[in-house]
Amino acid sequence: MLQLNNLSKIYRTSEVETTALDNVNIEISTGEFAAIMGPSGCGKSTLLNIIGMLDTPSSGEYLFMGENIAGYSEALLSNIRKRNIGFIFQSFNLIDELTVSENIELALLYHDIPVSERRDRVETVMDKVGIAHRAGHMPSQLSGGQQQRVAVARAVVGDQAMILADEPTGNLDSSHGQEVMEMLQALNEEGTTIVMVTHSPSHADFARRTINLFDGQVVAENIRAA
């Protein structure tokens, strides 16, 4: 699916230079479920942003489906991203002014998909994550777990091959967290590649592979036997 070769990210301000990622080499193959772990400030989110093409590396190679996209323009990246990658955030990041179904539909708006097909897909995915009965509600009327389910639905409604989840359970209580993790596991079993940043070792256990980062470097990798 993707391959990072000697990838580094350095943030510069006028006074300080911070190395967020230092020569990272990671390969994630299609269908994998990988968890990225590490203490605060170790570069987890930066890594996820670069994988998600929301940020660009300072040096190194990023091969996405065989293509080195390290120097691509924002418009090109945006095109690749919208067809292949879905996002789930810790704080859900739903748009407050849109209803549940409208929020999910948003992910299809920037693709050229006819209205009727959009509706069908939104309904299908709402059934799948069990939020159909809340279709017309505003995000503020939902519990955190429900909001995150909407976010999951939004991430997969465009048939994305990969989901990037940034602490998807960080704002949820344990039972809701468990629910979301099970949903991700189910998606993975259907073939979706998932890369997840998490603090929770128990949630990391859902992944088959754990990558540990420390000070911008990969310090350990565990692959759990199937």
């Binding site: 919208k82 996002f87 748009i95 002014e97 992910a107 920037y110 939004r154």
Partner: peptide, 12 residues
């Protein structure tokens, strides 16, 4: 935040 989400979802 809304704009960022729209961008993540592919808005130019």
């Amino acid at each position: 935040r809304e704009i960022a989400i729209r961008k993540v979802l592919g808005a130019q």
